[in-house]
Amino acid sequence: MLAVVLVCAWLTLAARVLWWMLERISWDRTENRRRWAGTRLPLRSLVVLGSGGHTMEMLSLLKDLDQDKYRCDFILGDTDSTSLKKVQATRPDLAENLERFHSIPRSREVGQSWTSTLFSTMKALASCLGLIWKLRPQVLIVNGPGTCIPVVAAALFFELVAFRSLSLVFVESVCRVKSLSMTGKLTYLVSDSFVVHWPELAERYPKAQYLGVLL
């Protein structure tokens, strides 16, 4: 009897994972899945700000973004002291409400050893799981800093186990002209849309979309 229950549980789980993978993973540009058609706006949107150049690029992308459609929350690395200041300097309207800014532990500082990286990554992932559970993002916009990996992993985990749909939009960094960054490669298959800044990349990767000059 127990064996039957176990087998059924495994089969259900396997079916769910398989179903999720079929819906989530794509090598090519996918048709618009119309996930949020008819949903009440604004969509709960989550934006990961990296550091330095990544933050600058993301802020350019958020220019003129309709806050009545996408209500943005922001994730920062907790050792990143400049990104928030930069938002406050360039987009005071977004920085009005500091409750919308959430910091998570960095998964790896420059020069950190690999064993301690394992622990700090777990810590970062745990904190992301908590945050994503609370924020229930419908849209996740990331542009490639290392900080976004645990965030994406946590969001996809809840999509898998808690049936929370997610639109995942990845924007590659402008300095990538010929090859994808590590985060780009990791996010490529699971993203809904994948944006690059150079036509060379769009030619090489069928899913990547070049949208002209955005910065």
Partner: peptide
């Protein structure tokens, strides 16, 4: 020109 980017977002989300 951010128009294509905004269009893509709407497309990806299907709003």
């Amino acid at each position: 020109n951010l128009k294509p980017w905004h269009d893509l977002l709407e497309d990806a989300c299907g709003v």
